[in-house]
């Protein structure tokens, strides 16, 4: 009896060791398969919860609909004007950059995604999106919401992508102060999403021009986040404990705790890679089908 127990314990130990030492590719494939397998269920449940929430919101705000409609209409008219101006400016900007011989900024596309889940263990601050490599989402891409930067993609399977939120202590972003151009590194403080302040901006000189209320945008350095994405606003500025530089505490613009949608900033190359993969898959399927049906 005792021998059997020891054998069982050894077998369990061996299985655990084997799982822990799986090669990266195999490990990623297993994780991706489980994630993709569960994503429809997660999506459906999340959709159901959202529907109920929408109905409650609709019933609550039914009296204000006319007013809200009018306000939205006014906003559309205003934004259309802004877009027109922005297009002219973009055209001028590109023309001047070409005249000066600057390289074009790399073209980007936005992939709209729905949030279908969060980190299951609570050790990281992540959200899961319902689109993955098949839709053109790649690792280390910025994810934004209409309010501002949300985070970056860290683990991408065929049909899902995990986004490391800005408030996670392992998420570091090179940013600058929009008003003065002072550069710094933004790090998450690990507080619960929605708690303030959620981030810290470090490594600014003692004479750096930064003050409360300043808008913080991505600097474009580092290659992950494109330049100029709004990240947050300064709530407090302090001299760091070692007295060598200043530290600013930031309030993130995007509502990390309640984000339901996100837009992945993809490059043309990402989309082309996804399209190529899809074509290959379709061609493969076609060949299989032909093979099966052939006499």
């Amino acid at each position: 009896m005792k021998d059997r127990r020891w054998i069982a314990l050894c077998a369990i130990g061996l299985i655990v060791l084997a799982i822990l030492n799986l090669p990266d590719t195999a490990s990623l494939r297993v994780k991706g398969a489980v994630r993709d397998g569960l994503s429809p269920l997660q999506g459906a449940l999340r959709g159901g919860v959202r529907e109920v929430r929408e109905i409650i919101r609709y019933v609550r705000g039914i009296g204000d609909l006319a007013l809200e409609n009018r306000a939205l209409f006014e906003e559309i008219v205003y934004l259309r004007g802004e877009v027109r101006v922005a297009r002219d400016l973009e055209r001028d900007n590109q023309m001047l950059r070409e005249l000066l011989g600057f390289s074009r900024r790399f073209p980007t596309r936005l992939i709209s995604c729905e949030v279908i889940g969060r980190d299951s263990t609570g050790w990281w601050q992540t959200v899961r999106l319902d689109k993955g490599a098949e839709s053109g989402v790649a690792e280390d891409r910025a994810v934004i919401t209409p309010d501002g930067l949300l985070g970056r993609t860290v683990a991408v399977s065929d049909e899902t992508a995990d986004v490391l939120l800005l408030s996670d202590p392992t998420c570091k972003v090179s940013v600058r102060v929009a008003r003065s151009g002072v550069l710094g590194i933004m790090t998450g403080l690990g507080g619960a999403p929605g708690e303030q302040p959620a981030c810290r901006m470090d490594y600014m000189g003692l004479t750096a021009d930064i003050q409360e209320g300043d808008e913080i945008v991505t600097s474009g350095l580092g290659g992950v986040f494109p330049k100029g994405l709004v990240a947050g606003r300064v709530t407090r500025v302090e001299v760091a404990a070692d007295g060598l530089y200043r530290t600013a505490f930031l309030q993130i613009n995007a509502d990390l705790g309640r984000a339901e949608y996100g837009f992945v900033v993809a490059t043309d190359a990402d989309l082309q890679a996804a399209a190529k993969g899809l074509t290959e898959e379709l061609t493969g399927t076609k060949t299989d089908l032909l093979g099966e049906s052939a006499p």
Binding site: V16, L20, L22, S27, V30, K31, V34, T121, W123, T126
Partner: peptide, 24 residues
């Protein structure tokens, strides 16, 4: 044992943890 190993794989797949950590 089966539940712990499968549950570990499930938890690790749905988070950023390396495969096998939650199982342990």
């Amino acid at each position: 044992v089966i539940m712990a190993l499968l549950g570990g794989i499930l938890e690790d797949s749905l988070s950023l943890a390396p495969l096998g950590f939650s199982g342990c």
